[in-house]
Amino acid sequence: MIRSRSRAAGFTLVEVMVALAVVALALPALLFALSQQADATGYLRDKSIAYAVGANRLSEIRLLARAQGDLIKGEDRGVSRMAGRDWYWWVTSTVTDVAQFYRVEISVADSETTRDTPLYTLTAYLSADFRQDTIPGEGSGE
């Protein structure tokens, strides 16, 4: 007995065209999501480095203030090199309502022209009172 094949196995042209249409619609959306993820990763990396630059600058301000016995007042600016790039920072020190306390704001950006929109801004309140007896564990021992 001989069997005849009336229909060949495989996909029809319509099925192949529908599959291609689905892939053509999904692929650009996937590529767009992937590029957004890559951009977000770069932004978070830059923001983390800017935080480190600001924290380093705050530590330096504290050390210099303690060594010199005087807290910086007014504004200061500079450039720090970290992770193979230059990072621009601006420090603003203002008097608060509390005696001997200053508000220190450190803004960090990846270019000098983006001062108005920094990647990271660190705000700290520092005492300008550097007497020996105000530090716990130090002093006359009374």
Score class of each variant (00 low, 15 high):
residue 7 R to C: 09
residue 101 F to C: 03
residue 134 T to F: 10
residue 83 A to S: 09
residue 106 I to N: 03
residue 89 W to S: 02
residue 20 L to P: 09
residue 72 I to T: 05
residue 67 A to T: 11
residue 66 R to Y: 09
residue 55 A to L: 12
residue 35 S to K: 12
residue 50 A to L: 11
residue 61 I to T: 09
residue 25 L to R: 09
residue 64 L to K: 15
residue 52 A to C: 03
residue 138 E to S: 07
residue 115 R to C: 07
residue 82 M to E: 07
residue 27 L to K: 12
residue 103 R to D: 00
residue 135 I to V: 14
residue 34 L to G: 13
residue 65 A to E: 08
residue 120 Y to P: 02
residue 113 T to Q: 15
residue 116 D to Y: 10
residue 33 A to E: 02
residue 14 V to R: 01
residue 39 D to N: 14
residue 17 M to Y: 01
residue 136 P to M: 06
residue 126 L to E: 08
residue 93 S to A: 09
residue 29 A to T: 12
residue 85 R to F: 00
residue 110 D to Q: 12
residue 92 T to L: 11
residue 115 R to L: 13
residue 1 M to H: 09
residue 33 A to S: 11
residue 51 Y to L: 15
residue 17 M to T: 07
residue 86 D to V: 03
residue 2 I to V: 15
residue 73 K to I: 08
residue 113 T to A: 15
residue 88 Y to L: 11
residue 44 L to V: 11
residue 39 D to W: 10
residue 105 E to L: 00
residue 129 D to M: 02
residue 100 Q to D: 14
residue 47 K to Y: 00
residue 15 E to R: 04
residue 7 R to V: 15
residue 61 I to M: 01
residue 56 N to G: 14
residue 125 Y to F: 10
residue 98 V to Y: 02
residue 56 N to V: 01
residue 128 A to C: 05
residue 13 L to V: 11
residue 125 Y to Q: 07
residue 12 T to Q: 11
residue 29 A to F: 06
residue 82 M to T: 01
residue 126 L to I: 00
residue 92 T to H: 12
